[in-house]
Design a binder for these strands. Structure first.
Lengths: 333, 333
DNA sequence: TTGTACGCGTTATCAA
DNA sequence: TTGATAACGCGTACAA
């Protein structure tokens, strides 16, 4: 069976493409009532769905939004080891689907692939995760291509961003954690590679200093943001013997930490307090329930969908959009 | 900055669209060597990327593959509560990205939305999860639209499918589990709504009967495939008091079960053996390590990518494709 | 209401 | 052998 086109509908109704197009787009004032009905019936009967390719070619946008997850260093695969992304994505997909937009999901592994993607699919806009410099974006700046950056600490003020208060959240978390079973360690990704992590580390440091605790570089454990590194860091922490509280900058890290501590027969929270960051669905469902910094991931995803559409439609949007975090008290502290 | 088109390249090289197109598509026999070089240089310099919309319109395929997750009953959102999907997706995305294809992700909530999606984006093919009847697909049958069904037990032989041996796997799992601390319960989704779950239940039953254990309908607990239902089922199991082993048909269920048992002070595996199904990244990282049926989710995703491309390209593909499962021994049995 | 040019890349046909 | 011309596919929008 051939594809049903606008011409088929026009022929069926003994009218022209233009008329059909008007009906589709609700310009009812341009078409007689009976024709509107006739066309609508034909569309339903023949199962006509407008091709967005043609629409896109005609300059009306592709109705496709890119969701871009950069992954320069580590593996080029397995973007969903950290459930943060998948939960966020589910919020975006939900919102955009309701608005009639499609989501093209792509990991980007090289700087120029982003630009390539945009052109290739003629994307209307993109939601991009965790970019701190614009080497990846700058060529698109000329296009004024609609981009929403998630958790970016890019210095250029040109970009729309959606963030949480990382410094503040980690400050609060650390304050919450400081309850003197020992020193307070930070388990995190490579701080040098991510301004977000830098911010979180700053919050951690501020809380320590405010509490009069000595800041000690060696209490910061940096590695991959994986369950495995959480375990590895905990192993080192165990060896030190002077740590009583551990703040991890991702739930997945916290879970690794907890796993290692439990395997070593340590009691949580009696011997060690552990706190995560994100509040993923997975960690809401672990036992003991993880104390963590909640950031309503899926809601953020929906908000990201709302924002990128606003940006595309030239509605008024703040350049910086901050969403709230709050400490979720579990049983690991 | 305007979009760079094939015409820009042609003008830059003082040649025609056709020639540029030949170069792009490697028809080097149609173009002189120096022209090939000139065109390629211009393409690089101007940052030209062919629009797949135009290509699609010209009948050369859209290079877009749909990944469709039907969600008829429950919520229309939160497709990734069960990390099975996100891990699978990551495998698909990885494979297709390398092959130059894009992934359009969509939940489908009504029967006709699938067809609509296909037409709307002019998808080259689709990977569809968990469909057991063809009400959703039949209209596309006429198009011979390339579809790969994942974990489907559709009866029509027309479709390409990728499955695991659900009956066999649950048979083996149940056999593994039968170690006599008590009776063996099955915690699962709504069996009536999914042939896959039906198969798994059959495997469970076969193992019981082979072992001479009485099959008891009331030992099968059916609900949503969520952490929460796992907890609820475990609560009922605790009340009964005669169960010693629990097989869950998804890791996420098993985790709910374990959470509830642990909260109730039960020892695992001393008092209860619990086994899951899937081997998601999340459950590889829990403590105690979950015993489960591994199905190499991400590999299955890559294989799905490979298969759908083969189907699209009319390469020889078996209609039924089975992949292996194997029991992963953890610490919960 | 309708005819028609346009946007972009592909390909068959024609010309050098 | 190499390159140019033109038609095609589909929806939009302006002119008629």
């Amino acid at each position: 069976m051939r594809r049903v086109t606008i011409n088929d509908i026009a022929r069926e109704c003994h009218t022209s493409k233009a008329t059909v197009s008007y009906v589709i787009n609700g310009r009812y004032n341009k078409v007689s009532e009976e024709m509107v009905e006739k066309v609508q019936r034909a569309i339903k009967e023949l199962g006509y769905v407008p091709s967005l390719n043609a629409k896109s070619l005609a300059g009306r946008g592709s109705n496709l939004i890119g969701v871009i997850i950069p992954q320069m260093d580590v593996s080029e695969k397995l973007i969903f080891d950290n459930p943060f992304y998948s939960e966020f994505l589910s919020g975006i997909e939900y919102y955009l689907r309701k608005a009639g937009y499609g989501v093209v999901l792509s990991v980007v592994t090289r700087d120029n692939r982003f630009e390539e993607l945009v052109k290739k699919w003629n994307l209307d806009g993109a939601v991009v995760f965790g970019i701190d410099n614009d080497s990846m974006l700058k060529r698109l700046g000329d296009y004024k291509f609609p981009v929403l950056l998630i958790d970016s600490y890019i210095t250029s003020p040109d970009y729309y961003r959606m963030n949480i208060c990382d410094e503040e959240a980690c400050y609060e978390a650390t304050k919450y954690l400081l309850r003197g079973k020992g020193r307070t360690a930070l388990v995190t990704g490579q701080i040098g590679k991510s301004k977000l992590l830098e911010q979180r580390a700053l919050g951690y440091r501020r809380a320590l200093e405010e509490a009069g605790e000595e800041f000690d570089e060696s209490l910061i454990f940096q590695g991959d943001i994986t369950f495995e590194y959480g375990q590895a860091a905990a192993m080192q922490i165990l060896k030190r013997g002077d740590v009583g509280q551990i703040l991890a900058t991702a739930d997945i890290l916290a879970r690794g930490v907890i796993n290692c501590l439990q395997s070593s027969g340590k009691k949580i929270p009696e011997e060690y307090s552990v706190m995560g960051f994100d509040d993923t669905y997975q960690s809401r469902n672990m036992y003991p329930r993880l104390t963590t910094v909640g950031q309503n991931i899926s809601d953020r995803g929906e908000m990201a969908g709302r924002l990128i559409l606003k940006i595309i439609n030239h509605e008024k949007v703040e350049k910086e959009n901050y969403m709230d975090c709050h400490i979720i008290e579990g049983d690991t502290t």
